[in-house]
Simulated scan of single mutants.
Amino acid sequence: MSVPNRAALAEEYAKEVPVDELMRRFGVHRTTVHRLAAQAGVTVRRRGLDEPGRREAARLYEQGRTLEEVATELGVGDETVRSAVVACGGKIRSRGRRSSV
């Protein structure tokens, strides 16, 4: 990414433009948005899940959705969902095909 685009991304992030919008606009991953903002000296904001959100994430995952699907629905990263599932006593399924049960 060019230096001017990095600066523009950091400036927009500092103005609290949603990360999902920045991801689409600049064609980068969520972690890249956070990394570039931090490199530019902008305080990085992280959206986590409160207790009801963690329970909802665990419920959706237990219903058979993938970490990525739950993360997309709740607007957080898949690692946030993984942490929520484990915190609620759930177990992370191994990667691969879903069972057709």
Results as ranks from 00 to 15, higher is better:
50 D>H: 00
98 R>W: 06
91 K>H: 13
60 L>N: 01
48 G>T: 06
99 S>P: 03
1 M>S: 14
6 R>E: 15
38 A>Y: 08
19 V>I: 15
68 E>L: 10
61 Y>V: 09
71 A>D: 04
28 V>F: 08
38 A>S: 14
54 R>T: 00
71 A>L: 08
31 T>C: 07
82 R>W: 00
7 A>W: 13
30 R>W: 11
9 L>M: 11
66 T>Y: 01
64 G>A: 04
76 V>G: 02
74 L>P: 02
19 V>E: 13
46 R>H: 14
52 P>F: 09
70 V>R: 00
4 P>L: 10
57 A>C: 07
84 A>R: 03
36 L>T: 05
72 T>V: 14
34 H>A: 13
6 R>D: 12
99 S>Y: 04
47 R>Y: 08
64 G>F: 03
50 D>T: 02
42 V>D: 06
9 L>Q: 08
62 E>H: 01
10 A>I: 12
62 E>R: 13
51 E>P: 06
15 K>E: 15
80 T>K: 00
12 E>T: 03
30 R>L: 12
74 L>T: 00
66 T>N: 05
37 A>Q: 07
68 E>H: 04
45 R>Y: 08
66 T>W: 05
40 A>L: 11
12 E>V: 03
46 R>D: 05
3 V>E: 15
60 L>S: 01
94 S>T: 10
99 S>E: 10
36 L>G: 05
